[in-house]
Design a protein around this nucleic acid. Structure first.
Length: 427
RNA sequence: GGAGGGGUGCCGGAGUGGUCGAACGGGGCUGCCUGCUAAGCAGUUGCACUGGCUAAAACCGGUGCCGCGGGUUCGAAUCCCGCCCCCUCCGCCA
């Protein structure tokens, strides 16, 4: 969320942000008109309240002295009625403005390439060479079922479309990947592991900005205020909602392995094959709370930390900086990691690393205080996948496939799979 | 799910209709003191919105905030209603 005062004073910058993101600037001018109306109403009602407060004190004094206060009381009864009316109007305007502010996207950082869509994203760097095969490489949706480690039919019987069942070595590979990633981030990158609730309330979702705009992307539990998390970002960022952290706790780095649930409403017909786009998947998520002046170096290191997973697994990838047209609602800047997929002969997003600056912190009330300083300030929040496990599974199977349909297990993963060197049928 | 208790400032903890933004204690900050530290003394101590001043602050004023939302009243931390959360006991359960 942008601060009201900021929008008021930097209207042109906000309008430019809307434009760069490919949104109409509509609403902003009306918003400013509302702002003026609201401030006028507040001035008026506060004057009346001040008058009432004075009179109430006077009434108390008169009564104490045994004097008659009924005239003043009658007068204040009218004033109170008037206040009630004006208060209601001011509250309405206030609510309208808050609702609007919650739908205003974050301002893109100056370094973000201006563009209309993903086509305008800027490639930052590449790592690794796509493997060369002397046979026609298969997609994971052929390899997996053939190895008996992936079962789409039964998943769809149990739940429906866009679910998958991992079986045998497939399930163990998923778990091995999660453990490998968690170990890497906790042992080498200084993250603290947390295991949060997988269900959150709507306040938490407003805090990280999935609500109010993106309810359609989420699963809600009927008859409750509970929602399945679309990413660990939500519970982990909200750990410190309405809290003030000590500056010496920062940067605070947390890693969580959770399932993620996404309704993918409106995406039917898109990426229906394989495990690319599922209603449920697992992800190891990195979350940082940092001091504002450090957030951009922290974004770089966060991205590098996510990249380390791919490097250690030997999976070729590239890093792209999202353009303004592709940038998420809450993000000021985002790097996507895209892994090489032989089955698609192209790169596919496997991690998204973002700096939200104070956008989430303001919504969620996450502050920090410097020792000895009175005034607190909002932290900057960042997060990134480190990595999406389902997509890593998929990339690994495709990149390490052999002519005979088996899959070689990368060295670093073998300790997590009882030393197994190869995924074969009937294991 | 049932019964009971409770939610007050950074923390502990008073406060049952007016003089309460809130006693008292602790902590923090500032100054004094001190070779340094501790102790001691004095002062100070939240957030949001809003008006004035301003380049912007500082600053000065106003309003609101004692879990959240309503209500009663001239006036509510204090009374009434609804909701949320926490604790204890019982039941159930991995």
């Amino acid at each position: 969320m942008l601060e009201l005062a900021y929008v008021r004073e930097h209207l042109e910058r906000v309008k430019k942000s809307f434009h760069d993101r490919g949104l109409g600037g509509a609403g902003l001018d009306e918003f400013m008109a509302r702002d003026q109306e609201r401030r006028d109403a507040i001035t008026q009602v506060e004057t009346l309240k001040a008058e009432r407060n004075r009179a109430s004190g006077e009434i108390g004094r008169l009564k104490k002295e045994g004097q008659d206060a009924s005239a003043l009381m009658a007068q204040m009864k009218e004033t109170s009625a008037r206040i009630k009316q004006l208060d209601k109007r001011a509250a309405e305007l206030d609510q309208e403005m808050k609702d609007f502010l919650l739908t205003v996207p974050n301002l893109p950082h100056q370094s973000v390439p201006v563009g209309r869509s993903a086509a305008d994203n800027a490639e930052v760097r590449r790592w690794g060479e796509p493997p060369k095969f002397d046979f026609e490489p298969k997609a994971h949706w052929d390899l997996g079922p053939a190895l008996g480690i992936l079962d789409f039919e039964r998943a769809s019987k149990i739940a429906g479309a866009r679910f998958v069942l991992y079986s045998g070595l497939g399930a163990r590979l998923e778990r091995a990947l999660a453990n490998f990633m968690l170990d890497l981030h906790t042992r080498k990158h200084g993250y603290t592991e947390v295991l949060p609730p997988f269900i959150v309330n709507s306040t938490s979702l407003v805090g990280t900005a999935q609500l109010p705009k993106f309810a359609a992307d989420l699963f809600k539990l009927e008859g409750t205020d509970y929602w399945l998390i679309p990413t660990a970002e939500v519970p982990v960022t909200n750990m410190f909602r309405d809290e003030t952290l000590d500056a010496d706790q920062l940067p605070l780095k947390l890693v969580a392995w959770t399932p993620c649930f996404r309704s993918e409403a409106g995406s039917y017909g898109k990426e229906t094959r394989g495990i690319v786009r599922q209603h449920q998947f697992q992800k190891v998520e990195l979350v940082k709370f940092v001091r504002p002046e450090q957030s951009y170096e922290e974004l770089e290191s966060l991205t590098r930390e996510a990249e380390t997973v791919l490097q250690q697994l030997g999976l070729p990838y590239r890093v792209v900086a999202l353009s303004t047209g592709d940038l998420g609602f809450a993000a000021a800047k985002t790097y996507d990691l895209e892994v090489w997929l032989p089955g698609e002969n192209g790169y596919k997003e496997i991690s998204s690393c973002s700096n939200f600056e104070g956008f989430q912190a303001r919504r969620a009330g996450i502050r920090y205080r410097l020792p000895g300083k009175k005034k607190s300030d909002y932290v900057h929040t960042l997060n990134g996948s480190g990595l999406a496990i389902g997509r890593t599974w998929m990339a690994l199977v495709e990149n390490y496939q052999q002519a005979d349909g088996t899959v070689v297990v990368p060295e670093v993963l073998r300790p997590y799979l009882d030393g197994i060197e190869r995924l074969e049928r009937n294991r």
